[in-house]
Design a protein around this nucleic acid. Structure first.
Lengths: 337, 337
DNA sequence: TTGTAGGCGTTATCAA
DNA sequence: TTGATAACGCCTACAA
């Protein structure tokens, strides 16, 4: 593989000149620059990014840490969409993405932070990690600039991107109320998730506003899992025939609730209205199609890239980006009366 | 950031000793090794992968080139699943993945091959590219070891992973025939795709075996697109009320056909049986749920990693891996008579 | 068992 | 406008 030295030799100049010619410095005559360019091309020269990084101390690389990336059966496109947005924007900044995953088969000895330091990533995006994940602490304390998805931590070079979970849930529940529902249960996710707390807030808020008292036992924990939500719903719906609607903290759980309904002979939306959260692809194809709170996952990715770049460029920033949600109305809710 | 030099200084030894102690050479006394390890730890030392690469000439990095990665609305989990399998296996080999995408907003000046050379990736996986993609040629000619997904090219350090498309299609159609169908149309993808040719082969084979003549006009081109398949089906189904089944070269197209059926008042599967291909997540949730030819995408990814490693380690290999498919029977096919 | 010295490919500093 | 030279952090003959 050709190096600057090869070019220099062939052009009869020094490596310095070659370097500067190729990097567009203006203290090199156009004539030699042209000659050098030509030779570089003919030699199929590509600068060695690593050698460059070594001296500039810039790897032009950002790390993506995804917990549970390798798990099969991740039905929600969430991770992937965020990754796309991220990659798209990062490449605009001239950065490439490098992927790390935690749960490798051979219990990886190296820690996240170590991986990042070895590769000298300039920043990190963390996604899908739980609030109590030990990796989380490790990375935050590592002083590598870092942006979290859906975990609200800010600090020196630490920020996060999320959507307006309170408002999203609020609007969903208010929509149900406007459709005449009052007996509205809430299938929430596990407590380790930041978003769960926020969405509960939104639920409570909408209920309070409508003057509907909230029964704590009507807030279920589906652990963001389809089968768990199904089982929870199975139990709950049998005990509470009076419920007319259920708001779910994820589409996957909403699908679980649908399954439970079907099994119990409860027709959606006639006997039970359901609203989900996320707007995953399946939502549109479910039967009936699912009314849900949509998050723009692609945008979450690019916003995360933007925020990280702010850190890297030393820009002043609050370190938080809260994106809007959008209620997508389909066929899983019926108007009461 | 701590370097070997720092450690050496603090331990009162040379950098050589540090390097060898940390890399597990046995010509260093256990006592000094222990001391060096301790100091390294206390200094939070991580070796600089780039400096190491520079001298070992091994980047421990493989590139992933995905065409159309950033396109929103890629409903099939395909790319993502493959990526997961790839990443999972690669990390077992001690390799990290670096992502490149072509269609960045700012028309990226650098070519794929250039990107790969700059980052000194040891090998490349190419996915989602069309047979006539200029990038394809470029990469293949670049003499970087490379594995293609679903494109049958082999050569020096070039190989591919695919599934048995002929057999997959054959089994799908034979299944339809066993259910009593004879008037079976085929919604194929575009001709630029390798898999389309193969699946057509399988279709023809099964039909011939059953002694059912194939009418070329019954083979449609849905371009692997949901709306295109829908429109094609709309036209075709109106003209051919005698068709009882349609085999589709992708689940997405099968969904398009379902939409068309619905619009025409043709009930699936009572009036029209449908078999798809891929087994994307939506297939299970569609209404009726879709009988389809499943491909293990995760496994395709890990097989690709394996093959690439064979190249990198100079192992003898045919350069092709053809994985099995698996007919998943759900509710979109009815038994005739 | 340990240390010295050279080099990987690039950029940066300084002098010519 | 150009060139010599010294880094960057690491590994690896070779010598001690």
């Amino acid at each position: 593989m050709a190096t600057v030295k090869d070019i220099a030799k062939q052009a009869g100049v020094s490596v310095t000149t070659v370097s500067r010619a190729l990097n567009g410095y203006d203290d090199v005559s156009e004539k030699t620059r042209a000659r050098i360019r030509e030779i570089a091309e003919s030699l199929n020269y590509s600068p060695n990014a690593m050698a460059r990084s070594l001296v500039t101390n810039q790897s032009k690389t950002i790390g993506l840490l995804v917990s549970g990336l390798s798990e099969e059966g991740a039905k929600d496109h969430f991770t992937f969409d965020v990754l796309n947005g991220l990659n798209d924007r990062a490449s605009e900044y001239g950065y490439d993405l490098i992927l790390f995953n935690t749960n490798s088969a051979k219990q990886r000895v190296k820690s996240y932070a170590q991986l990042c330091r070895e590769r000298r990533v300039e920043g990190v995006i963390l996604q899908g990690v739980k609030v109590d994940d030990p990796y989380l602490q490790e990375v935050i304390e590592s002083d590598i600039p870092c942006v979290l998805i859906d975990i609200p931590i800010t600090g020196k070079n630490v920020g996060y991107v999320t959507t307006d979970n309170v408002l999203g849930a609020y609007e969903a529940v208010r929509y149900l109320i406007k459709q005449g529902h009052e007996a509205i249960a809430f299938m929430n996710g596990h407590e380790k998730a930041y978003v769960s707390g926020k969405r509960l807030e939104g639920y409570n808020q909408a209920m309070a506003e409508a003057g509907v008292p909230v029964d704590a036992s009507w807030v279920l924990n589906g652990e963001f899992s389809e089968p768990v939500a199904r089982d929870q719903a199975l139990r709950f719906l049998q005990e509470h025939r009076e419920v007319t609607a259920m708001f779910c903290s994820s589409d996957l759980m909403a699908l679980g609730v649908m399954q439970a309904s079907k099994r119990l002979g409860v027709t959606v939306p006639k006997d039970l209205s359901i609203v989900g959260y996320d707007d995953i692809v399946i939502a549109e194809y479910a039967h009936p199609s699912l009314t849900t709170v949509a998050q723009d996952k692609f945008q979450m990715g690019s916003a995360a890239a933007d925020l990280l770049m702010d850190f890297l460029q030393g820009k002043e920033t609050s370190g938080e980006k809260i994106l809007p949600t959008n209620l997508v109305i389909r066929d899983s809710v019926t108007r009461l009366r």
